[in-house]
Every structure is written in structure tokens, then in C-alpha cells.
């Protein structure tokens, strides 16, 4: 194994990690705000990929330009999901029940996509999907670089909304103490609906990049959910910055192990590292208490 293979694995891990952070951001935001474990996140990612496919193939809209349509559409979808499914859950058993309810949402999405598109695999196509540029001896695919930059940009916007705006203060207030937030005039229901909307909206972008880098069909979301949950848990539930750091760390570690040692061990090391980190930092890298206090 050469040094250049190792370096390539690190670069691949960082670029792919950015995409995973983008896909996990919505999950961590929804959990952080509402204590809801959104099992439908994988299905929403696949839905995002199909939306981009429709715009690209049937309307000829570029994958990245299409996000101007899919992100707002997904915001509305997120608000609708919050209103129809999440708001109805009782506070006492919200987290446990959310697993069942969002699983139902995932099944609904999968069923609809199967009926509309069938189960054949698709992959998003654009001139930059297979194109690369050569730098320092590596061929870097444009789609991964663009996806990484998109992830950094959108996660930055999310961070700004949460920590630099009045709405963000409302979100964090709701996280810390719902009753106190309501007493000082925060409309918690509205904050929650908008937060889920934002979380799902970001997922549209993650879905587009996922669809451009992987073949997908309506069932592809299930393969993602365990990986995304592990990133969110390692990050510290609710932490946007943590999601980025955790995704970069986990995916890079996995890629390096796959190249240096064996792909079979990569998955084991991925989850073992999660256990090791949580042994020392049970709240994750950016523990939820710290996230809510920022």
C-alpha cells in the first residue's frame, strides 16, 4: 500500500464525509429540536434523488439548479410531515413513538416511489458526474467536490440560522425548556414545524448528491439510516457542526481502513470507533447539553 493510496483514501473520505454530513444534518436538527428519531430520513434522501431525476430528465434542469425547486418543495413537505405525524405525538412517549411513525412515513414514501417509478435502479446524470480534475497526482471527481462545497455552504447557512438569528434563539430556547420558551412568547409549535421543514429541505440537497454518486431505487434509503444515525449520535444530538466533524471522521476512518487493511474490517472499525468515542464522551463529540447551551 503506497502513501499515495493512503492520501487518496483520506481525500475520498473527506469528500464523501461532507456528503454524509449533508444527509445527516436534517436528522440531527429534527432530533435536536423535537426529540424525534426520524427513521424516514433515508427515504427522504431517496425522494430527493427522484425529485432531482424528474427535473433533470423530464425538464432538462441541471441537478444543482434544480435545488432551487426541490429545497423549497421539501421545506413544505417537512412542515406537512410535522403537522400530520409528529405534532400528534404525546410528549411523554414522543421519542419512542416517533420511530414507529416515521417508519410509517418511510414506507409511504417507498410505496409511492415504487408505484410511480418502479424498482429499477437509476443514477442521476450530468456532465460533471463522471468528470474529474487532476491535482497533486489525484483524479478528483467534480461531483464529490461540488457536493462537499454544497454541504459546507448549506451547513454554514444552517449554523447561521440556529446561532445568529431570532428564530434560531427560539429553536434553542425550545430545546432547553419548552415551557419557559412558551412563557416568553416563543411559538413552539411554529418553531418545531419550521425546524422540521428546514431539516427536510436540507435533505433534498443530500438526496441529489446521493443520487449522483450512487445508483438508487425506492428501497435504497434503508441502507443509509444506520450510518446516518451513528453519525448523528457521534456528533451529539442536535449539533450541526458535530455532524460535519463526525461524518468526516467516520467516513475517512472507514475509507482508510478499507484501503490499508480490508473493506471487511472497515465497517467494524466504523462502529467500533463510535463505541470508543461514546465511552469517553457519552453525549457525543458535541454533546447535546453543550449544543443547546451555545
Amino acid at each position: 500500500m503506497s502513501a499515495s493510496s493512503l492520501a487518496k483514501a483520506v481525500v475520498d473520505g473527506i469528500l464523501t464525509g461532507g456528503v454524509y454530513a449533508l444527509m445527516a444534518a436534517g436528522l440531527t436538527l429534527i432530533f435536536g429540536v423535537m426529540d424525534i428519531i426520524n427513521i424516514a430520513q433515508g427515504a427522504l434522501i431517496v425522494l430527493g434523488a427522484y425529485m432531482s431525476y424528474v427535473l433533470s430528465v423530464h425538464l432538462g434542469i441541471d441537478l444543482f439548479v434544480g435545488l432551487i425547486i426541490t429545497i423549497p418543495a421539501f421545506f413544505v413537505l417537512g412542515v406537512a410531515i410535522e403537522w400530520a405525524f409528529m405534532r400528534r405525538l404525546r410528549e411523554q412517549d414522543r421519542t419512542a413513538m416517533s420511530i414507529l411513525v416515521t417508519y410509517a412515513v418511510a414506507i409511504i414514501i417507498e410505496g409511492l416511489l415504487s408505484v410511480i417509478f418502479g424498482v429499477d435502479y437509476l443514477q442521476l446524470r450530468a456532465s460533471y458526474v463522471d468528470s474529474t480534475f487532476h491535482i497533486l497526482g489525484f483524479y478528483l471527481p467534480y461531483i464529490y467536490v461540488f457536493g462537499f462545497l454544497l454541504a459546507i455552504g448549506l451547513l454554514g447557512v444552517l449554523y447561521w440560522i440556529l446561532y445568529r438569528t431570532h428564530f434560531g434563539r427560539g429553536v434553542r430556547g425550545s430545546l432547553q425548556n419548552r415551557t419557559a420558551a412558551e412563557l416568553i412568547g416563543v411559538n413552539v409549535n411554529r418553531v418545531r414545524a419550521v425546524s422540521v421543514g428546514i431539516g427536510v429541505a436540507v435533505t433534498a440537497a443530500g438526496g441529489m448528491v446521493f443520487g449522483a454518486t450512487n445508483a438508487f431505487n425506492p428501497s435504497s434509503g434503508y441502507d443509509l439510516i444506520s450510518r446516518l444515525l451513528s453519525i448523528v449520535i457521534l456528533a451529539g444530538l442536535g449539533s450541526i457542526a458535530g455532524a460535519l466533524v463526525a461524518a468526516l471522521f467516520m467516513v475517512t476512518l472507514e475509507d482508510v481502513v478499507a484501503v490499508v487493511w480490508s473493506p471487511v474490517w472497515a465497517t467494524l472499525v466504523y462502529y467500533a470507533s463510535l463505541i470508543v468515542v461514546l465511552s469517553f464522551r457519552p453525549g457525543g463529540l458535541f454533546g447535546s447539553a453543550a449544543v443547546r447551551a451555545q
Binding site: S2, S5, K8, D223, L224, E254, A258, P263, V264, T267
Partner: peptide
């Protein structure tokens, strides 16, 4: 090399084969 059946990121394996 053998890779896990549930792998979601084939890039490192495929890149290693290419290398």
C-alpha cells in the same frame, strides 16, 4: 479483497482496484 454486503460507499474499494 472481500467487501461487506451492506457497504454504501464503494469509492475506496473501486479506487484501490483502479490503483
Amino acid at each position: 479483497k472481500v467487501f461487506p454486503a451492506e457497504v454504501t460507499d464503494y469509492a475506496p474499494i473501486a479506487t484501490a482496484v483502479a490503483s
